[in-house]
């Protein structure tokens, strides 16, 4: 069983702000982390690897610094890490990113299962997983909250839906995207960290994964960012004072007056 987990190194988005006067990003001391949902993907990959005695590869596309995310994946227990890195990949939108990752997976060879986090917290698009599946022409189950069964040729998994879930069965190879609920990611071990320090991260350029130059990076991206700006600022709210019963009465009458409550 060969499993690939796609991970992304993202800025800790909660730290990023925009300066409303200059309309530009303020980035101070923002740390790079592994996308939290990808940690769930790694954990699920590790569990399947341990259960089925498989091989687990962490794959990422990004600048050379993203190597540290792959080292972290190895510290958690991945067998190896592959970084797709090339100036030509820069500026990729979800289409070009998915394309590049799908070519990276082709380069790895026969893969039985690909696991992605449901979305990345810097983009929140949830598009890369299903797009990779399409580009590799394999089935895909998104928002997996539980894998009920998996063997060499099949996977049975619960797909989270609004107001419930679907139990799906799919043949392998397949791609799944996982939600946070699926597991609690483990922490690295000291031995894993020591191994990660020594382990070489494999690096592939555009040429290594045979990408046409007009399908990757900004060139291959159908979308462009026209502009970025600060979200509208909310008006400063009203603080309601007084004893609990007094405050409650004031609040309810205010809400009725404003038509929020009927």
């Amino acid at each position: 069983m060969k499993i690939v987990v796609c991970i992304k190194q993202v800025p800790d988005t909660t730290e990023v702000r925009i300066n409303p006067k200059t309309n530009t990003l303020i980035r101070e001391g923002v740390e790079s982390i592994i996308n939290p949902f990808d940690l769930n993907a790694l954990e699920e990959g590790l569990r399947i690897k341990e259960k089925m005695n498989g091989e687990l590869i962490a794959l990422s596309m990004g600048p050379p610094q993203a190597e540290s995310a792959l080292k972290e994946a190895i510290a958690l227990g991945c067998d190896s890490g592959i970084l797709l890195t090339d100036r030509a990949f820069a500026g990729a939108d979800t289409w070009a990113t998915s394309y590049t990752l799908s070519r990276g997976i082709r380069r790895i060879g026969e893969v039985d299962l690909i696991i992605c986090g449901k979305q990345a917290i810097d983009g929140d698009t949830a598009q890369v997983g299903p797009s990779i599946a399409e580009m590799l022409d394999i089935p895909c189950i998104t928002y997996v909250r539980k894998i009920e069964e998996i063997d060499k040729s099949n996977i049975k998994a619960q797909r989270m839906m609004e107001g419930g879930y679907h139990l799906l069965e799919s043949s392998l190879p397949a791609l799944i995207t996982v939600v946070k609920e699926i597991n609690e990611p483990r922490l690295p071990s000291l031995r894993g960290k020591m191994r990660a320090r020594k382990e070489e991260i494999i690096k592939y350029s555009a040429a290594d994964i045979v990408c046409e130059i007009d399908s990757i990076g900004q060139m291959g991206s159908p979308t462009v960012v026209e502009k970025i700006f600060a979200p509208p600022v909310r008006d400063k709210g009203t603080m309601i004072k007084g004893e609990p019963s007094e405050a409650a009465a004031k609040l309810v009458s205010e809400l009725k007056e404003k038509g929020v409550l009927l």
Binding site: D93, T94, W95, S98, G123, D124, T125, A126, Q127, V128, G129, P130, S131, I132, A133, E134, M135, C140, T142, Y143, R159, M160, M161, E162, S221, P222, T223
Partner: peptide, 21 residues
């Protein structure tokens, strides 16, 4: 949950841009 997965796959297949949310 349906639309996000579906739209992604269609956009990937026909090679076009997709903007989420």
């Amino acid at each position: 949950t349906i639309g996000r997965a579906f739209a992604s796959r269609v956009a990937a297949k026909i090679w076009t841009g997709l903007t989420a949310d």
